[in-house]
Design a protein around this nucleic acid. Sequence first.
DNA 1: ATCGATGCAAAGTTTTTGCAATGCT
DNA 2: AGCATTGCAAAAACTTTGCATCGAT
Lengths: 143, 143
Amino acid sequence: MDTELRQTLHRRGLRMTPQRQLVLDAVAELGHATPEEICTKVQEIAPAVNITTIYRTLDLLEQLGIVRHTHLGHGAPTYATGEHEHVHLVCHRCGTVGEVDADLLDGLAGVLAAEAGFTLDPTHVALSGLCSRCETSDSEVDA
Amino acid sequence: MDTELRQTLHRRGLRMTPQRQLVLDAVAELGHATPEEICTKVQEIAPAVNITTIYRTLDLLEQLGIVRHTHLGHGAPTYATGEHEHVHLVCHRCGTVGEVDADLLDGLAGVLAAEAGFTLDPTHVALSGLCSRCETSDSEVDA
DNA sequence: ATCGATGCAAAGTTTTTGCAATGCT
DNA sequence: AGCATTGCAAAAACTTTGCATCGAT
């Protein structure tokens, strides 16, 4: 199960360690989580693992293309495994993070390529706006 | 010219100060800039202004709806005036920030509203991907 | 004269770096 | 055994807070 990671590391002369497996497992399980959250999760199993190692491992896994990070708004970035092929919808009122299929951005991707020569990475995007709940309560407040 | 800000402040029992005018001017002129950059700009004119005041003033101007901040990627957020009606295109290879017209997201906004009940705020969005330059050099590297 | 705004210094967060000890291969 | 990896501690980067002073109204 950890063979894939092990081999990816091997190919670059890097080593497989329990920490790296734990971090990857935590990222995969948590979905999109901050370094802090990932650290907490990892420490449930291996309390001695240092937050420094979390940061270093996340950087590494990202370089290897195994995880990606997204800035969903405020402070900390969130990390998720590459299989997470969706777009994040962040409500800037309540902070809720929703998700929709990345396919919805196909049209936009074409336009951006044509207009700006920009190659959109749909899975790394966080769109900002209001979720349905806040949109509703918002109109009441604004009135 | 500063009358609008002055009155907005007045309405809430707040005061007009040179610092507040300078911060607003700097934000408007710089486009999208970090607190640090804004501070540097302000200090060109008024060297005594403290970074603390920059932070406090940006928070205030944001509450008043005069500026908005966006997280374009790494560390510091960037601030811009509300008139900045464009979408940011952040290259996650070289960090360059491009801009396109917010109208390009109109189609997507409709889809998201229908699919997810999500009200997209096009001006607060940062899209991630590769700029044309990095896209080119990328194919070479990957090969 | 009042009370909000500012500057300074200090503390709080989040992330990075240096280095000796550890442990994977 | 060799060298990448880790943990710890310290530093760096970014932001917030407390408080006395200043200044807009």
